[in-house]
Design a protein around this nucleic acid. Structure first.
Lengths: 208, 208
DNA sequence: CCTACCGATCGGTAGG
DNA sequence: CCTACCGATCGGTAGG
């Protein structure tokens, strides 16, 4: 038992050391991505943290609030990536390639949160708000692709919208298999993805 | 108790015309993909069909059985695509390109079921069995990529496993946005995806 | 009055 | 194919 008799005059920490809001969020994001949001109960989350459900509710108002926090983290990261890359000087092609690289880096840094974002169905206001923000990002990306096509640096035989979807579909698919700490680092991955997307997989003379 | 008093002599059709097992499965797959499997209750499904929950259980033994049927449909389609494309004559490159095209076609034909498959978490035996079958498919695809790299038709500076993941990550990402009946047909989409994956997005002299 | 919890239980709803 | 239910578990909250 912690201090049942001795009253320390300093009003320092009482109760157990315990977790903070950030630790609860981290555990929630991990479980939500591994099992799915709907399939994860607050009880599951509490068990993973080694506390009771009530302890979880001490730190967070609702299960949906945890989802909202996670989705905001993913969206903020992606929005910043798009902001920075679109504001950069240079050709539309260079900006697009930069946004691909930066997106991969965000996706690696906030992988679990981005995974959640990509799986949102719109089953609640929180999810619908996230989908709306995501659509805005997608539209900005499509605009960048359009500019690169008009500039003449992307193949002109394909619809820019289609190109945008294939491009960021490839980027987003990374969450399905990439695990940090493996043989491929984040920056290296970003460069490989950009190279494959823009230059293709087929062997070319310059490979030899 | 059923029929406590009135025993109708004619055993003809009783009850409403109603749905069959296939209609229940179709509605389930649609709802599971739209809302997520865990977030879809059997009551939701019943409401969508305009019947009661018990009516649903007349056609199907459990919610998990509906998931198993859907996942089997997706897996069988993809397995057939890989079977046929890998058995075809020609270079490894040609077989790989064929399997990409055939995969896109299966994905379009069984889009909802494939979407479900791609979102499986392994939360039940049904889901774990599906993941195991999917892994086998992925390994065969990776083997085909490896053969194409060794043959010299794919860029040799990248790990075949990485190439395989990017390639089929791109293919699989189609479920997120492709809707049949739109401006792009299935075969056309298959050809575009193969072209973009192998030749890249960047403009090249032959485009001009 | 605070932070950090616990044991028990709330009203509703899940799959069956 | 329905009405009428079950065991259990859901997200969330009470007092201490």
């Amino acid at each position: 038992m912690p201090t049942p008799t001795s009253p320390p005059p300093a009003p320092a920490r009482r109760g157990r050391p315990g977790h903070d809001r950030e630790a609860v969020l981290a555990a929630a994001v991990e479980l939500f991505t591994r099992q799915g949001y709907a399939a994860t109960s607050v009880g599951d989350l509490a068990r993973a943290l080694g506390v009771t459900k009530s302890a979880v509710y001490h730190h967070v108002g609702s299960k949906g609030e945890l989802l909202a926090l996670a989705l905001d983290r993913a969206l903020a990261g992606l929005e910043t990536a798009v902001d920075e890359a679109t504001a950069a000087p240079g050709s539309a092609y260079a900006r697009l390639r930069a946004v691909v690289r930066r997106s991969v880096e965000v996706l690696v840094a906030e992988q679990a949160a981005v995974t959640l974002l990509l799986r949102v169905h719109g089953n609640s206001d929180v999810e619908r708000d996230a989908l709306a923000r995501r659509r805005t990002i997608d539209e900005r990306l499509a605009g960048l692709v359009r500019a690169a096509v008009e500039e003449g640096s992307l193949r002109a035989d394909l619809d820019p919208q289609l190109v945008s979807r294939l491009l960021f579909g490839t980027v987003n698919s990374l969450v399905e298999w990439y695990r940090p700490g493996g043989p491929v680092g984040a920056e290296q991955l970003a460069e490989v993805v950009a190279a494959v997307c823009f230059d293709g997989l087929a062997a070319r003379p310059r490979d030899l």
